[in-house]
């Protein structure tokens, strides 16, 4: 039987209460929401936080709304809720593509968007999705709220811009109509972490690509994105040739690590292949 080490537990009643609890328990406290990354790590004793601050009662963090030209996704939104959200998936089908292949329905019922991002796992799917969408993370701490572009959010594997004593509140995505988006993932089995995955967001004006967003999962892409490939696509006519070249550029700039999911050359190949496929599907959806 896997049993965690001893820890304190406190249930937050509001964001301000959560922040005061974080302050009280100090840097060895962790926020728990869905618990689907943290609890297994605690049971394996890879993580031994001194306290858990439970934020499951913070319903103000559970909203999915379009507000002031932005799609707002609260940090406590469950994967299943995002998957089922017509406003979110209607604007950006990339959410549906990605959420369908995140873990399994049981995990999706409980796991949260904010938890996924804050875990900062290099194989986590939503990080690439929000990177492709150029989202903004809203973080609150003792000094109030601040905005962090998602491409500055991840500072390295398992490291994010959320500092001790802070809480991720929500993600904001510019609700630009007329975009196409898609996410493509290769996994060894349904529910597995990605061997590699790619997300793409495209908008086209006057027959050329106005703006491209490319997110990459599990291939060692800095900040989960591919700015060189995006730049290559901007102003270019969309099509197979451009997408393949964008894939090639994206692959060139990532640095995948070999593991039992695959060797580095294969993951690099997938970065190219899946980028092209995601771009193709995104284009079809415009």
């Amino acid at each position: 039987m896997q049993v965690p080490a001893q820890f304190e537990y406190a249930r937050a009643q509001s964001v301000s209460h959560a922040l005061s609890l974080l302050d009280r328990y100090g840097p060895e406290a962790r926020v728990v929401a869905g618990g689907h990354s943290l609890i297994p790590m605690m049971k394996l004793r890879l993580a031994q936080p001194e306290a858990l601050i439970d934020i499951n009662d913070l319903s103000e963090l559970s909203r999915i709304e379009v507000e002031g030209g932005e799609l707002v996704i609260g940090a406590l939104v469950r994967h299943a809720e995002l998957l089922a959200s017509a406003p979110a998936t209607g604007l950006f089908p990339i959410f549906q593509d990605a959420e369908r292949v995140i873990a399994d329905p049981i995990v999706r019922n409980r796991g949260t968007v904010g938890g996924s991002l804050c875990q900062g796992d290099p194989s986590e799917d939503l990080s690439a999705v929000f990177a492709a969408l150029r989202a903004t993370a809203i973080i609150e701490g003792g000094d109030g709220r601040r905005s962090v572009p998602i491409r500055d959010f991840h500072e390295g594997p398992y490291e994010t811009a959320v500092q001790a004593g802070e809480l991720l509140i929500e993600l904001r995505v510019p609700a630009t109509p007329g975009t196409g988006s898609a996410y493509v993932k290769v996994e060894r089995r349904v529910g597995d972490w990605a061997v590699a995955a790619a997300g793409a967001v495209l908008s086209v004006a006057g027959g050329v690509i106005e703006r491209a967003g490319i997110g990459l999962t599990a291939v060692g892409a800095e900040h989960f994105c591919a700015p060189e490939a995006e730049e290559y696509l901007t102003g270019r006519e969309p099509g197979e040739e451009a997408f393949a070249e964008a894939g090639r550029i994206a692959a060139e700039h990532c640095s995948p690590q070999p593991d039992q999911r695959g060797p580095a050359d294969y993951k690099r190949h997938l970065a190219a292949e899946l980028t092209a496929r995601a771009l193709r599907t995104a284009m079809e959806r415009i």
Binding site: V186, R188, V195, P258, Q260, R261, G262, P263, Y266
Partner: peptide, 22 residues
């Protein structure tokens, strides 16, 4: 026959499946 294994077999460069993937 994982995706990585099949792809490498297609490339003519299979790896030993019983050891760590290099």
């Amino acid at each position: 026959l994982t995706p990585a294994n099949v792809w490498r077999v297609i490339q003519g460069d299979p790896f030993r499946t019983d050891l760590a993937i290099p």
